[in-house]
Amino acid sequence: MTTPVLDALDALESEAIHIFREVAGEFDRPVILFSGGKDSTLLVHLAVKAFAPAPVPFPLLHVDTGHNYAEVIEFRDRIVAEKGLRLEVAHVQDWIDDGRLTERPDGTRNPLQTVPLLDTIVEKRHDAVFGGGRRDEERARAKERIMSLRDGFGRWDPRSQRPELWNLYNGRHAPGEHVRVFPISNWTELDVWRYIQRERIELPSIYYSHRREVFRRDGMWLAEGPWGGPRGTEVLEERTVRYRTVGDGSCTGAVESTATTLDEIIAEVTASRLTERGATRADDRLSEAAMEDRKREGYF
């Protein structure tokens, strides 16, 4: 009588689909944060599966730092067109131009994404915002909820988090508040890669090994770009690299790698010596509490 036990990836997929459908059923104006990175590409893939054969009933939002890789923007726009989705873009540059934001001395724009994100949420009256956060990314996220309430300022109050029981999600919120939703909370980095392989999900080419002109800064390989560099004694050299996350070019480092296929990436991740964020995001290295602080500010 009994059906076979669900495979781990099927169980995780079913959980994520359940969460997408709950939000579609209970919220008026959800939006999916989509950067073209692997976790948000996975989110979009799952959203498409949750509502097939009907279209995804909500738009995507990219908070664009302007510090991009051309391959990623090309990929982003192509996926949106191919899947018949709607994309909103909030350009950090617009906020800098009209004085609502000031460029940081170090040129890094990741922390500048918070204000455009919150302004857009308010302007478009989004009440649920899907993000690709995973609890295994770092210790500070281990107790993050799947649905997390944010106040009118987008802030996360760690003292009043709702307990999450069974698969009953409580998304109630007052006008002006919104809920951040993390459907892939329970996925590990390896799950993500194995699923990308199983489902043949296309990713931007920069996730695969390629030759690129890079320079060394703060233990990372950074690419030349509008964000500045190389400076001083930093020299450009061609290396065989790939990216493990897609973020602001000023602080997202490439890793030296010859992995050109998903099998090779999975082998690399399995043998990995560094957590994804620790290896490649300079702004996560600023302080141990960096993530917690930014979460309180409304950043993911």
Binding site: R135, D136, R139, K143, P158, Q161, T188, L190
Partner: peptide, 27 residues
């Protein structure tokens, strides 16, 4: 895993922290 302890001192709500590990046969 002592994230929880530090948070307790700060008075942060902690009910559950989720951890992930796997072996060749199970997650």
């Amino acid at each position: 895993v002592d994230g929880l302890r530090a948070e307790r001192e700060q008075g942060i709500t902690i009910d559950v922290a989720y951890r992930y590990f796997s072996t060749p046969t199970r997650e």
